[in-house]
Deep mutational scan, measured.
Amino acid sequence: MQIFVKTLTGKTITSEVEPSDTIENVKAKIQDKEGIPPDQQRLIFAGKQLEDGRTLSDYNIQKESTLHLVLR
């Protein structure tokens, strides 16, 4: 499924993921596309910071959901 990751600069990254993918996994995909190390990434969805060990389905993230990427 496709999800969108919006950066603070307003850029939107499209990523191909599975509901069973972990947040860590998603951060790795963002690193592949943007070159941002996962340890600098914080992903936010519905006002919550997403934890690395959890999966997209844990957070009820569905296709075409938009996550927000904040850098630390």
Rank of each mutant, 00 (worst) to 15 (best):
D52L: 05
P37I: 05
S57F: 10
L43Q: 00
S57C: 04
I13P: 01
Y59Q: 03
F45V: 03
V26W: 00
S65Q: 07
P38I: 15
R42G: 07
Q62C: 05
E51W: 06
T66R: 04
S20K: 08
E34W: 15
V17Y: 06
K27M: 11
G35R: 06
E18K: 14
G10L: 03
T14L: 12
K6Y: 06
K63F: 07
I36T: 07
I13Y: 10
V5D: 02
R42H: 12
G47W: 04
H68L: 15
D58L: 02
N60Y: 06
Q31E: 09
S65H: 06
I30E: 00
T12V: 14
E34A: 14
D32I: 13
L71M: 10
F45C: 03
Q2V: 15
S20V: 05
I30D: 00
K27S: 02
M1D: 03
I13Q: 02
N25C: 10
D52C: 06
Q2W: 11
Q40H: 12
E16H: 11
D39P: 07
T7R: 08
L67N: 01
E18L: 14
L71Q: 09
T22A: 05
S20T: 13
Q49M: 13
N60W: 04
Q31H: 14
V5Q: 00
G35H: 07
Q40I: 11
D32Y: 10
T7E: 03
E34C: 15
L50F: 01
M1S: 04
F4S: 06
E51V: 08
K27N: 01
Q62S: 10
T55D: 02
L8E: 15
E24W: 15
G47H: 05
P19E: 07
E16Y: 14
Q49H: 12
K6T: 11
R54S: 07
T7I: 13
L8C: 15
P38Q: 14
V17S: 03
V17T: 03
D32H: 11
V26G: 00
P38T: 15
G47S: 04
L50W: 00
R54L: 11
P37Q: 06
I13D: 00
Q40D: 10
R54G: 06
S15I: 15
D32R: 12
F4T: 07
H68F: 14
S15T: 15
H68D: 08
T66Q: 05
F4I: 08
K27I: 07
I61R: 01
D58I: 02
A46I: 06
K27G: 01
K29F: 11
P19D: 06
D32Q: 14
T9A: 12
L50G: 00
L8V: 13
R42D: 11
Q2A: 08
P19M: 09
Q41W: 10
T9C: 15
Q40E: 11
K27Y: 06
I44Y: 15
T14F: 09
R42K: 12
D39S: 12
G53P: 06
Q62N: 09
V5P: 01
R54E: 04
L69Q: 03
T55W: 03
N25P: 02
I13L: 09
K27W: 04
I13A: 02
L71G: 07
T12D: 03
Q41I: 13
P37E: 07
I61H: 01
F4V: 06
I3M: 02
L69H: 01
T12Q: 06
A28C: 09
G35S: 05
E24L: 14
R72H: 12
R42L: 14
